[in-house]
């Protein structure tokens, strides 16, 4: 009997000890698909002994929904876009990073330090920033591509060969820019026009897809693809004769950010991960992989030289990039209705 008790106690102790130890050495990341090189995660594990588990999502909205449906308390960090950082802050989903908790906070570039969506960077650090526009296959269409009409009122040879990102925020922004109406407009006539224009434009679209946005351009399934600039650069580098457009009406500019989630089970590890990403060499590795731009000082020596002259990274003089605004509930309700009308 005594023997039995000792064995059980030992087993329990081992089990408990093991679980405590593994809790110490874990980090659970909720991240966009294809957005961080595996080697970088391996490097983090090698340096800190922290094992990284990662789940992925394909839109800011999908990430928010999944966190609200019970993901809080599971993940330590997520990587929302600018407007989504603001939404998550309003929803009380983010933990505050106290002054001095991040030793590499000084590496953040000045212009990305005091941003409107997170003044003083209390909840987030910059990950990557870039733009959302579209690419056109130059074998199929040789005309002027720097207009949003390519997406919303395309020439005959492009009709039916367009893939849109399955992302309400970005589609609505580009549509508003095309019509020349403000974002989150409360004007009924303008909203009605937005709805009608999108319904008409849909007839020209082949599909809505985000995760295969690059692949359908490379394979030639579509001739026009709404896409993020870095993802689009990869499509070009994989051999597609595609050109990234900078529409005159404007295009979307965004910044993705690593945020510390409320109730993070491994808060200390999350901070270590943020510090790790703020090292110029590591952030440069992300940029080299994802083909966007870093918000960290001193990355230049580590960057792939191609990036400096990459057309997707270098908008022409006077190009107009616009951040997505967060609409209030009444307008968002109409946006949701329009989105349903478009996608039904």
């Amino acid at each position: 009997m005594k023997n039995w008790i000792t064995t059980t106690a030992t087993a329990l102790a081992i089990a408990l000890g093991a679980s405590v130890a593994s809790a110490e050495e874990e980090l659970v990341v909720y991240h966009w698909f294809e957005y961080i090189p595996q080697e970088l995660l391996d490097k983090f594990t090698a340096e800190t002994g922290i094992k990284v588990t990662m789940d992925t999502y394909d839109s800011n909205e999908a990430m928010l929904a999944s966190l609200k449906a019970g993901g809080m308390g599971t993940y330590d960090v997520a990587v929302p876009g600018d407007y989504m950082v603001k939404i998550m802050t309003n929803e009380g989903m983010l933990d505050t990073i106290a002054e001095g908790e991040l030793k590499n906070k000084g590496n953040i570039m000045e212009q990305w330090l005091d941003v409107p969506f997170d003044p003083g960077r209390k909840h987030s650090i910059p990950y990557q920033w870039g733009s959302t526009s579209f690419m056109v296959n130059r074998d199929v269409y040789k005309g002027d591509i720097n207009t949003l009409a390519i997406l919303f009122d395309p020439p005959a040879e492009l009709s039916g060969k367009i893939n849109m990102l399955d992302s309400q925020g970005e589609v609505m922004l580009l549509a508003s820019l095309y019509l020349g109406i403000p974002q989150c407009s409360t004007d009924r006539a303008q909203l009605k026009a937005l709805n009608d224009m999108l319904l008409k434009a849909k007839q020209h679209w082949a599909s809505f897809n985000s995760d295969t946005a690059k692949e359908v351009l490379v394979s030639g399934d579509v001739a026009v693809g709404m896409i993020w600039n870095g993802f689009g650069a990869k499509a070009r580098e994989e051999g597609a004769n595609v050109e990234y457009a900078y529409p005159r009406e404007g295009f979307n500019v965004w910044m993705d950010n690593v945020v510390l989630l409320k109730d993070a089970p491994h808060r200390a590890n999350a901070l270590k991960f943020m510090d790790f990403l703020l090292e110029p060499e590591n952030m440069a590795a992300v940029t080299n992989y994802a083909r966007y731009a870093a918000g960290v000082k001193g990355v230049e020596p580590y960057l792939d030289p191609v990036l400096a002259t990459m057309p997707e990274q270098n908008p022409p003089e006077g190009a107009k990039g616009v951040f997505i605004e967060v609409c209030d509930e009444a307008v968002q309700k109409v946006y949701d209705q329009i989105w349903t009308n478009v996608k039904k």
Binding site: S59, E61, A62, L64, A65, S66, A69, N163, D166, S167, Q168, G169, K202, W205, A206, S207, F208, N209, T212, D336, W339, T340, K343, K344
Partner: peptide, 25 residues
């Protein structure tokens, strides 16, 4: 979603959109 281009909802995609998509209803 994948073969139909997510352009024309079926019941499943309509329901999925409400829980993990943009509409969130």
């Amino acid at each position: 979603d994948l073969l139909g281009g997510a352009k024309n909802f079926m019941i499943g995609s309509l329901i999925e959109e409400q829980f993990k998509g943009n509409a969130g209803n």
